[in-house]
Design a protein around this nucleic acid. Structure first.
Lengths: 341, 341
DNA sequence: TATTAGCACTTAACCATTGAGAGTGCTAAA
DNA sequence: TTTAGCACTCTCAATGGTTAAGTGCTAATA
């Protein structure tokens, strides 16, 4: 449906627009990219591309600007991925290696900063959705009066604290028995599975007679009921330098999108299962707040277990090639690093 | 040095400017505030106030605008504090009561959101500087190969995880002995004191012979060496609605200030010792990034122990009265809540 | 002597006009 | 099928004139 020549013109328009935020005209394309065609011909082609929905007009006498569909075509044709051996990236990431040892949260938060510095867009990262992490061990301590502290270790190397309110006093001895029971019963299961099993257990009335075990189940319900991973975003000041966010209205939209972490979390959550770099352009996204932004993300995996999502948020007019290669490299780097450890 | 009338004019100018972001002229003051004086007289007074450094001129034919010194005078004369019984505030805060039970981090993060919603400025909160928190108990677990997880409970109710790299394998049994030793030795001391004691212990060569204890000291060094508290900031989209941040340059400055958490942490840290609401206006602040912003903060204390700092960051043209009362109430509310618990 | 009215002056903000420049669409010729 | 040419459209920046707000100063006033 698109002949070779049209494709080239489309890509030329997009590339030019990405590097230079003004609508691009037929003359520019004819001159800068060595088609042996006159401006008039290019003009005709561009008119066709517009009719097909790949380009638009801000107004009659302005050049062409890509639509989301245009970007999509461009991105899909960008097959050469990830191997832009950007030394800068590698060095930057190596420096962050230390942070990893500390804890995953630290790693993710540093990663977002690095990504944003490298890409000049927003860096995002989300630690794994707890529902798919696997319980390794749980330890319980009486904390303050009426409160129990649960320390949860996962196979992924995460440590989570939960403070649980209790309606009656429980001794440390009781807690030890409870944690013993929980570990023997639930260790090796994901939080999701544990939740489901708890629901089943609860229906067995026999167990409810054992006060301690019903207590244990209460604790579990609290401890494993945590919906989403943590979200990290960095680089707002970086992105405000872009001409795309030169007017107040757009900045407000952006800041709302960034502050409404819930939206982004839901979005990233959907993508955390898939492999490789994924791209969502503008309105392809179902979230209203993000309609004018694009996402380039990749899941990080340790062997086959998802251990988080990292990515870039930027304007639809984004340097997708650069973004893809940064995200790809970073995700692979983190995955590799975690396997080695 | 300032007669009663001048004071009143100054306050009138500032109040008007706070509620309405345009330079205020002599006519406005004469009309809106019932001085029985003509505009001309007000004009003379304003000229005097300008000479004394309380007001400025954006340009010759514009009205007056307060200087930082002017704001300072105004704020100092605002003695009626905190008792603006704002029902809204109270209700909003009560809702957050649940979050407290979870953990302090959650509480602080929610508090910033509430504060920003109520004030329409940035809400900030910093959890306590670890160096002044008191160790209640430490538990050690072998985590992954070569890694030990330290769970630190403080008297303040905080729980901290630290993952510590070990150069040699230690069994769980060893870890239990180590934690037993640490608890008997350091429980009840602040992190600062612990650090100092460790330095002393290390010089006693006798102990170094006991491999386990030297190991323990290694662990401590890692575990208690954490410089600052966590900083939470919320409400950027709120603050972008203000006319004070209507141009790009100012927004960039603001976003840089917000992203450079280190600067704010240092600033808040200085204020975490003092009692009551403290106010820093524009250039009174030593940090360059914050020269055009004001801070209204208060330390939260449990009995006499500092458990964090909360506050508001906004433009120098801030509704200080409202800000002060919100900060004061919130800080007192949190302090009270934590004592009761 | 303190206050006020009046007036000249300054400046920003708004508005309409203008011309240049960029780019298009269309037509007719190659 | 491609291209040259041309009329047309639209933005943008500069220009200039007008208005409104506000000042500072001076002279009159209570």
């Amino acid at each position: 449906m698109l002949d070779e020549r049209s494709k080239k013109v489309l890509c030329a328009v997009i590339q030019n627009y990405i590097s230079h935020p003004d609508p691009v005209g037929s003359r520019t394309v004819a001159k800068k990219y060595s088609f042996n065609l006159s401006a008039a011909t290019i003009r005709n082609i561009m008119a066709d591309l517009e009719e097909m929905g790949f380009l638009t007009h801000p107004h009659t006498s302005a050049g062409r600007v890509p639509t989301d569909r245009g970007y999509r075509f461009y991105v899909d044709s960008l097959s050469a991925r990830g191997d832009c051996s950007n030394k800068e990236v590698i060095r930057g990431l190596f420096k962050k290696l230390d942070a990893l040892r500390e804890n995953l949260d630290m790693l993710f938060s540093e990663t977002t900063k690095t990504i944003s510095l490298l890409s000049h867009y927003l860096g995002v990262a989300m630690s794994p959705d707890p529902s798919v992490t696997t319980l390794k061990r749980i330890e319980l301590f009486s904390h303050r009066a009426d409160q129990v502290a649960a320390i949860i270790f996962t196979d992924e190397g995460l440590i989570k604290n939960k403070i649980i309110d209790m309606d009656l006093n429980v001794t440390q001895k009781d807690l030890n028995r409870i944690s013993g029971y929980l570990n023997s019963e639930f260790s090796g299961y994901t939080f999701d599975e544990i939740r489901q099993r708890i629901l089943k257990e609860m229906s067995r009335e026999k167990l409810l007679c054992d006060r301690l075990i019903s207590k244990a189940i209460d604790i579990c319900r609290e401890a494993f009921f945590s919906s989403y991973g943590d979200l990290f975003i960095a680089g707002l000041s970086e992105v405000l330098e872009l001409p795309d966010f030169s007017d107040l209205q757009k900045i407000r939209e952006l800041s709302r999108a960034v502050e409404d972490k819930h939206t982004i979390v839901k979005l990233l959550d959907k993508l955390s299962e898939s492999d490789g770099v994924q791209i969502i352009i503008g309105s392809e996204n179902s979230m209203n707040e993000m309609k004018k932004l694009s996402l380039v993300v990749s899941a990080c995996k340790e062997d086959d277990k998802p251990i988080g999502v990292i990515g870039i948020i930027g304007p639809t007019r984004m340097d997708y090639f650069k973004a893809i290669s940064i995200v790809d490299m970073t995700a692979k780097f983190i995955s590799r690093m975690l396997v080695e450890k």
